[in-house]
Design a protein around this nucleic acid. Structure first.
Lengths: 194, 194
DNA sequence: ATGGGCATGTAAGTAGTTACATGATTTA
DNA sequence: TAAATCATGTAACTACTTACATGCCCAT
């Protein structure tokens, strides 16, 4: 127990692309899935033990003493497809930025502006990163080419999300400026966007 | 202990808009913050006890026996502003949909299309909901008018996010269609978007 | 009088992170 | 040979949810 199906899915998925050690798995998850997923060692190693016991992966002694390489078994591939086919469970959202802005009156327009600017900067960085990944995609996954179009979908999601954050931030900044200009009286009128 | 600052912030924030019972607080958080925040009773009641002990909120006996209304104290207002001013802590992302699409080859283009269509439908619903809230905003918060422009920021964020999801889904569906059309060979060429 | 919504609270369980302990191998 | 990196594993902690126990009060 104590290992969620989500984690099993990520571990089996990683090993479905290439056999590797637990340590490498964590690195790969960080690099390839980092912008929408994460796993810590405290999850990965128990998951590897469990999956090995279930015959879904196999452990081979690696060159390095004490370390081992894990390979997915045919049963593991079947299990992976099963897990992937389950409906994605969406955790309830917790957006600290929006929570702060909701109570923004307590915080003041200036501090809110700062928060939005920070968010905008993060989104810009995210967008640049996604575009970098997209240009490097064809080369990176040369041997895992059939996965490339699916990976592209996740990169595009990141791009759309980042662009939306930037557009929202710009609109929000303008509203906050109006708010500062008209200290308390007439609430600023909002024109329809798009 | 055992009550996170995040929860204290949400509880103090809720009570900063109006005094209410723990039960009402949960309802309000659900209705007003539901699309970007959530709190369960298991969080709210311990938080109320803690904040009361700290003198940040006060309990008054309500009309109904056994129930009590909580009011934020001046010290509570100060604490709220302190908490709001702290940098938003962003939990690491876990997007089950993108995880599935990343390993989409195992799942097949058809099942992926279904997943994307579901996501698109959810985004459409979200967009409609955000637009409904926006039109009702001026009326709803008549007495809490000064909060309205800040609340609007969070609604706009939801709209931008939903629109981005829809645009991404449409692009993804087209890519998946191409993928089905060209079974395995020539990976489809992606033209630059924007 | 009873079923449903209002109301409070707690215990148990789930999911996950962080920090630590340990040691091998590579690189500077 | 020392530091950095690779590698495995576990224990303690944090945050949060779910389920339950309890009871009030209103409408039918």
């Amino acid at each position: 127990m104590a290992v969620s199906e989500q984690t099993q899915m990520a571990v089996l998925g990683g090993l479905s692309i290439a056999p590797m050690t637990g340590y490498a798995l964590r690195e790969q998850i960080r690099e390839a899935l980092g912008h929408f997923w994460s796993e810590s060692f405290g999850q990965i190693y128990p998951a590897l033990s469990l999956l090995e016991q279930g015959g879904l992966i196999e452990r081979q002694a690696a060159l390095r003493a004490g370390s081992s390489t894990f390979t997915i078994t045919p049963a593991g591939s079947i299990r992976l497809r099963e897990l992937l086919a389950e409906a994605p469970q969406t955790a309830q959202p917790r957006n600290g930025l929006l929570l702060r802005l909701f109570f923004g009156r307590q915080l003041g327009a200036d501090t809110c502006r700062r928060l939005v600017l920070d968010a905008r900067a993060r989104a810009e960085a995210e967008l640049a990163e996604m575009q970098r990944i997209r240009t490097e995609l064809p080369a990176e996954v040369a041997e895992t080419a059939p996965d490339a179009p699916y990976i592209l979908l996740t990169v595009l999601a990141g791009e759309h999300s980042a662009r939306a954050s930037i557009a929202w931030a710009d609109e929000a900044l303008q509203l906050l400026d109006n708010l500062s200009a008209t200290p308390s009286s007439a609430p600023t009128r909002i024109e329809e966007s798009r």
